[in-house]
Amino acid sequence: MSILVNKDTKVIVQGFTGKEGTFHAEQCLAYGTKIVGGVTPNKGGQEHLGKPVFNTVKEAVATTGATVSMIFVPPAFVADAVMEAADANIELAVIITEGAPVRDMQAAKAYAVKHGMKTIGPNCPGIITAEECKIGIMPGMIFKKGSVGLISKSGTLTYEGANQVCNEGYGISTAVGIGGDPIIGLSYKQLLPMFEADPETEAIVMIGEIGGDLEIQAAAFIKENIKKPVVAFIAGQTAPAGKRMGHAGAIVSGGAGTAKEKMEALEAAGVKVVVSPAEIGKAVAEVLGKK
């Protein structure tokens, strides 16, 4: 078991034949992901990486039965691509592209929600179910199969966290990079219950950062609904207010969205909060050891 994706998940790639799409699709195929084709307008009928290329997502879905799309199109076309996927009854769109305008993502997400399509990202490393299915740009080799679920706004902190968990002798069930933009798809609140319900997952690591209030919402949700142990780290305790820290959404504005308030809310919800990401692995060992 795992959440959202596994070895049988059929995946298409939007922006399949572009430089990024090609490079990462190749890596995903090498990892074992069941990529069944891709979409690039006006290249339909061709073959790429040994898989068929289609002009539209609808054609790709009709022919291959894909349920997930990995999106690599340039930022200005992301909203269009997401809405096309929703319109073609894709179940989950994983949006890797960085730099999509907020207004576009607002419209695209609203449309996706209306059509019952889940989204991950944008501006994220994607999702990986260890040793089964990698849909994204993360280095696959650090994700050993195991019982820890991971949710993170940051790409490299996902790798850092997963690596520590594996070095402690545990492994990862599924890791989801949700992205650090102001408007994102699936977040802690939607992913936590999936991990709670997944029999393979025994503990959850959640990595957040300054800006917005998703971590606060997560804390309230954990308090009421999550029985499995949760370890959390919030990046940006030392970030100055009013400065955008790399991610479009990572900003403390008007005194709101600080690391401190998020850490306090999570602690109050019974989460084991670490002050440094260097402590994530040890904290996981501690919560799992207690069981």
Binding site: A235, Q237, T238, K243, G246, H247, S276
Partner: peptide, 25 residues
């Protein structure tokens, strides 16, 4: 000097936690 915004912030936080002070993100 770090790759990734999250790890960059996390590195600053770790330096701070260990009694140092970060000069930049």
């Amino acid at each position: 000097m770090v790759n990734g915004a999250g790890l960059a912030m996390g590195t600053m936080d770790t330096i701070n936690y260990m009694g140092g002070t970060p000069a930049n993100f």
